[in-house]
Write a protein that binds this DNA or RNA. Structure first.
Length: 478
RNA sequence: GCCCUCAUCGUCUAUCGGUUAGGACAGGAGAUUCUCAAUCUUCAAAGCGGGGUUCGAUUCCCCGUGGGGGCACCA
């Protein structure tokens, strides 16, 4: 690889080996961090980790009008949450900094100077344009309703790592520095990739059409372009078009807020456009890193499916160790400041909270269900589901059954300490009366929780404890 | 309008010329359990159309059609 203007590596005297992979994720802090950006970051990160290369985070904040520090922090937070750590970039530094384009103005100026000196750039209307080399002629563009200068050139050939050979003709000079003095995306993007020694550009397919401009720029700088890999886009769940920041379910922070497990989201995102070549779906990230490679990336766009994501999240949730699950639950509850049930749960004894959460773990799809699912454990004002009540009270004499159970549990020899003991009490009672377990289960559940969903009735009785159980039954029978 | 790109069940996908076209999510049915989930079994569900190439095309080529992206002094 020849580098005519390598101010990055050369000036600092660092010469990484040419086989060393360097990839970058280059977001602009102009909006919320969304699913598509996250997956681009993820694929770059995976490729770096797979190859033992370097993952660079570069902030493309040249659009002064739309940048915001809040959005920038959101990028940092979201990436940290997803576990996408960067080897070079803001906060961690590196030999090729600064890593915010707003701080690299002098570098762009230098590079533009080189183009000017080489006759590959010129000024027009106060802006600086990149000059294509070829025969020129004027034509009127019907679509844009203006006269433009066309340059006759053979097509640019891109050997894309994912899409194969792509050809595209670039036939108009383009602006590289605006009349206000600010460099445009194409210029800064290419300059930084040269200066930062980037070897592989992995980005969304929406950039494929830009690539011909970029290749011309590389050529203008006398630098061999890096490898390109354009990944398919993520389409919105419903309706036409690619997913954008304002689509339902598009924001990473939303999943964070809703208590999704980041490893579940990452696993799901990996599968959107990539697969290991066999039937495996749920895989540890270490395994994905081992298997991930550019040729394994699909060429067609993928539609986002929140049901599948929810399923993946549940699968991960089920296998969480008790401590982590309880921590996740507590953190989620703490964020629900407006939710009375959540606040009541937090106010409860931590050991009791923990037990209730753990018995709910195998029952739920996401922690966001927890406050409502467990509300009756923490409050005496739980609602009685009218439909369930109607159904339960319809057959037999449920109140009599409940009365009998209350009496059995009140007996001095009744053991409340284990699920098995409680089950023995209930089953013994049912047998003695010539009835089934279900005759006692349903009405007891209704009385204790007001619903027909929840953990095992014996567990519920044990965890709620004698005091609550007796009070609730009495109230129900009154 | 021009340029680029993609095309297998509703969705995500496997198949690198020969398969009963497989898996997962979602959906239906059943089993199991004290309810609800989970789990297990099971059912239904696909090669966009037309031409080629080939003994043989989902697979390779071409043309349509459809989807997606791009065509800025946004990134």
């Amino acid at each position: 690889m020849q580098r005519a203007f390598d101010s990055g590596a050369r000036m600092r005297g660092t010469f990484p080996s040419m086989s060393q992979v360097r990839v970058r994720f280059a977001p602009s802090p102009t909006g919320f961090f969304h699913i598509g950006s996250a997956r681009t970051a993820l694929f770059n990160w995976l490729y770096a980790r797979h190859t033992g290369g370097t993952f660079i985070l570069r902030i493309e904040d040249t659009d002064k009008e739309r940048n915001s520090e809040a959005f920038l922090n959101l990028i940092y937070d979201s990436m940290a949450w997803l576990g996408l750590n960067w080897d070079e970039g803001p906060k961690v530094g590196g030999a090729y900094g600064p890593y915010r384009q707003s701080e690299r103005g002098h570098i762009y100026k230098e590079y533009v100077g080189k183009l000017m000196a080489a006759g590959r750039a010129y000024e027009k209307d106060g802006a600086i344009w990149f000059k294509l080399l070829g025969e020129r002629h004027e034509v009127f563009d019907e679509h844009r309703k203006k006269t433009v200068t066309k340059v006759k050139l053979p097509p640019v050939v891109i050997e894309d790592q994912i899409r194969g050979r792509v050809e595209r003709i670039e036939d108009e000079d383009f602006v590289i520095v605006r009349s206000d003095g600010n460099p445009v995306f194409h210029l800064v993007n290419v300059v930084d990739d040269i200066a930062m020694n980037v070897t592989h550009i992995i980005r969304g397919e929406d950039h494929l059409s830009n690539t011909s401009k970029h290749v011309h720029l590389y050529e203008g700088f006398g630098v061999k372009p890096p490898a390109f890999a354009h990944i398919p886009l993520i389409l919105k769940q419903n309706g036409p078009g690619k997913m954008s920041k304002r689509d339902q379910g598009a924001l990473i922070e939303e999943y964070q807020r809703r208590g999704y497990l980041p490893e579940a989201l990452v696993n799901f995102l990996c599968l959107l456009g990539w697969n290991p070549g066999d039937d495996r779906e749920k895989m540890p990230i270490a395994e994905i890193i081992k298997l991930f490679d550019l040729p394994g990336v699909n060429q067609s766009n993928a539609r986002f499916d929140d049901k599948k994501l929810a399923h993946m999240n549940m699968a991960y949730l089920l296998e969480q160790p008790a401590d982590r699950f309880v921590t996740l639950a507590r953190e989620y509850f703490a964020r629900q400041t407006e939710n009375a049930a959540a606040q009541a749960a937090l106010a409860a004894d931590p050991a009791y909270f923990r037990e209730v959460m753990l018995l709910s773990q195998p029952k739920i799809k996401g922690v966001e269900e927890l406050p409502a699912y467990t509300a009756y454990f923490f409050s005496e004002t739980y609602a009685i589901d009218a439909k369930v009540k109607e159904k339960v009270m319809a057959k037999g004499d449920p109140k009599a059954r409940l009365q009998e159970l209350a009496a059995a549990l009140a007996a001095p020899e009744a053991n409340w300490t284990t699920d098995a003991a409680i089950e023995e009490t209930m089953k013994g009672l049912a047998t003695a009366k010539g009835l089934g377990f279900g005759d006692y289960q349903a009405v007891t559940r209704l009385a204790l929780s007001g619903t027909n969903v929840g953990p095992s009735i014996t567990t519920m009785i044990r965890v709620l404890g004698r005091e609550r159980v007796q009070a609730r039954i009495a109230r129900f029978l009154a």
